[in-house]
């Protein structure tokens, strides 16, 4: 199997296992009256590890799969998860955050975005359930629960994807420290090859 196919295949398998586990197990475990939702955390982790394009595609695929499996309105979850995967990817591409707690903050943001976004779309589609204090409380508890789970989920996703990642952020950073910020391939002297004698002084 070529290297270029390994990452998409792992992402498909990851989305499949996540959705099945979420529906069959995690959704049926209630903590303080709510259940954790692993799907936005996995999509966010993929965005942080693989970049914006892979994150957005993973978000679309996972969301569509969730809508299909739960017999919900198609397109709602996929629309939200595109952003959940895309923005962590952009953060990685633009800032390359090194702090170990970044997945924690991104997990909270991803869950909040998915929860509030779902509420907004449901209102637009005409679901008769105005905002109440209880719904707001449940959203806050879900965000807290997911925030606690975001680090282990990110760690697991990284473990699954690391062998096929073209560039693992942690590995790249470690290499950066050892070589003064550049990989050997990027050093001008090595890229250009040996200097010709005629021009050497």
């Amino acid at each position: 199997m070529t290297q270029s196919l390994k990452l998409p295949l792992r992402l498909i398998a990851l989305a499949f296992v996540t959705v099945v586990l979420q529906e069959a197990v995690v959704s049926q475990i209630s903590v303080f009256g709510v259940s954790a939702d692993l799907t936005p955390l996995v999509v966010m982790s993929v965005g942080l590890l693989c970049g914006s394009m892979a994150g957005a595609i993973m978000g679309f695929g996972t969301g569509l799969f969730v809508d299909l499996v739960l017999v919900q309105t198609l397109g709602v979850t996929s629309l939200l998860y595109i952003a959940v995967g895309y923005w962590p990817g952009r953060l990685r591409e633009l800032r390359d955050p090194a702090h170990g707690l970044v997945p924690l903050a991104m997990g909270a943001a991803a869950t909040a975005f998915a929860g509030i976004g779902m509420a907004l779309i449901q209102f637009l589609l005409g679901v008769d359930s105005p905002v109440s204090l209880l719904l707001a409380q449940q959203l806050v508890v879900t965000i807290l629960l997911n925030t606690l789970l975001s680090l282990p989920v990110y760690g697991l996703v990284r473990r699954v994807l690391r062998p096929v990642l073209p560039e693992d952020p942690h590995r790249r950073r470690r290499r950066g420290y050892a070589t003064g910020g550049l990989s050997p391939l990027q050093r001008p002297s090595e890229r250009l090859g040996p200097v010709p004698r005629s021009t050497a002084r």
Partner: peptide, 22 residues
């Protein structure tokens, strides 16, 4: 350009699915 095109395509497909299904 490619990133924006993919993002636009995914959003468009989602909206089309949502509208059609609804």
């Amino acid at each position: 350009r490619r990133r924006r095109a993919v993002l636009g395509l995914l959003v468009a497909v989602s909206v089309v699915l949502l509208t059609a299904y609804f």
